[in-house]
Nucleic acid binder design. Sequence first.
RNA 1: GCCCCGGUAGUGUAGUGGCCUAUCAUGAAGCCCUGUCGAGGCUUCGACUCGGAUUCAAAUUCCGACCGGGGCGCCA
Length: 606
Amino acid sequence: MGYQIMRRTHTCGDLRFSDLGKEVCLQGWVRFRRDHGGVTFIDLVDRYGTTQVVFDPESLSVGIDTQALANIVKTFTRESVVSVNGIVRKRVEGTNDIRNDTGDIEVLITTAKLLNKSELPPFELGNQKEGMLPGEDVRLEFRYLDLRRTEMIKTMEFRSRFVHLLRQYLESQKFLEIETPILAKSTPEGARDYMVPSRVHPGTFYALPQSPQLYKQMLMVAGMDRYYQLAKCFRDEDSRKDRQPEFTQLDMEMSFVTEKDIQDNIEHMLAYVWKSIYGKELQIPFPRISYLEAMEKYGSDKPDLRYNLPLVKLSDDLRNTNYGIFKKVIAEGGVIVGLNLKSDIALEKVGRNDVDRYIDLAKKFGLGGLTWMRVKNGTLESNIVKYFTPENIEVIKSKMDAEEGDLLFFMAGPWKKTLEGAGFMRRQLASDLNLIPKNTFQFHWLVDCPMFEVDPVSGKKDAYHHPFVLPYDNYNKGACFDILLNGYEIGSGSLRIYDPDVQKKVFHILGMSDEKIDEDFGWFIKALGFGAPPHGGIAIGIDRLITVLLNKETIRDTIAFPKNKKAESLVDNSPGKVDDERLEELQIMSLAINDTDFDNIEELKK
RNA sequence: GCCCCGGUAGUGUAGUGGCCUAUCAUGAAGCCCUGUCGAGGCUUCGACUCGGAUUCAAAUUCCGACCGGGGCGCCA
């Protein structure tokens, strides 16, 4: 007979009043211990709940060695794992814990065993008091303990449930879950790739996929018709609070569809999940907003539409203004937008000092400055009003719906920079002035996107989404769209190019030579030539979606083992160095300063 | 690569040039306690990220490094 321990009969969330009198075995972690001298209470915890187990010598029948049992219970320190056998009994009258599902009962310990003691935890897992969580670096270093916290368990449960429901829906709609390679070919366009050296072919590298884009398109060529995958994707770019180097997408592709077909599918999928999780109907279809309207009205291609606070475009109405800055901007083909803070908030919460603060902030957001006026006694008041004709003032008032007491901000400059800056202002004001409703989820489709964007510095064209989007309107627009939630882009989709010649042309427009196209994408264009069906798809960022749905501060809170801002995993210290022999095997030499003797480097390079 | 914010016992914090032998809470250790549930009471333990500079005097000011976070760039 080898080593064995007794099996538990219940989890720590199972026992109820109806189990009174049962002999049970529970196993779990010691979260809190309350030693009253004679009687000791232990909160025994596992994923499913908390059960109070009691060492109560006076209740024990004769024949049990209470002293021995006391000695065992004494070893049950915080967060150690223990096994207890005992009898389910009613709690003493008036000591029920109504907050806990198991709060009507407790387990009288008759035998107990320390399964594994715990080191003293570096932070308190059970303490639900606000602000007692340690810094995130400590949480990440001891992630297995952080994940032991109820809040993290709930998050993982939510995520698991959510993903399960997605799969359930997609399977019901004839989607096939197909896995695509993690070791893939590097595509030089787009994000920086994580590289994996090939031992068999020294000097060559696999790339970890930024998305399974080309594989899923080939699956459509293959006739799979409907594909999905919960795909791990990798991008070697700097992190943000909503961006990780390694993340999970719900990746989908469908053949013989329109943009609307894809969107309908997503809406129905989310509605299905919504109903299952929240028991409520999700309002579909989601409203559509064009790229142009999003930019000019909200200053963002992912506007938060839970609150209004729109920008008002005034460039066309102020053509004859004498105000120098506006005049110049109009002459240069720029844009002027206004933003109206209505009197009920403006008068109360935004004083002269605040206005100055916003002017400073505007400069930080890349705006040239910020002009402002107040509506007072039926007219506009500020030091620049004199430059505006009565007609100017009237048009401003009517376009911006300016009423007594309102505070008007104006931003002017080059189209994109100014609108994005104005978008930052809008967001900042909304957050400062508490205009953002909590616990509302506002899905939108961003549609009518451009095919290309021109880099203002280099003049080079870049794909707005990616180079595989089906262009239309003479290559000016792309059949692509984003799905937005509360100011986050949670996914993007498009119809794809299925004609090899069109695909080549798009690469040409992006400035690639025939040789380069052939080398990097020849294999893919070849595939399109073998009867690629019209197709399209979408990818939804699962980590980010869960983050928004659970109101988390960062995407890291929805990933079991995330990387920190510097792309390190604190729990296992990755990335790490490898032995020289391993590098030699791969025929790789490090040029990193700390690794290499620089006296020898030039020598070595030869 | 750049900008901003932060770094005080294991954890969370107070402390803006001398009242600091550094606050409070939590924790840990020990003792007391038979109905608690973030138990309670008493005692004890435990910290200014590092290196320079200014000063009679630095946790506090300045400079630099390191560490963490937020943002810009980047993320087709």
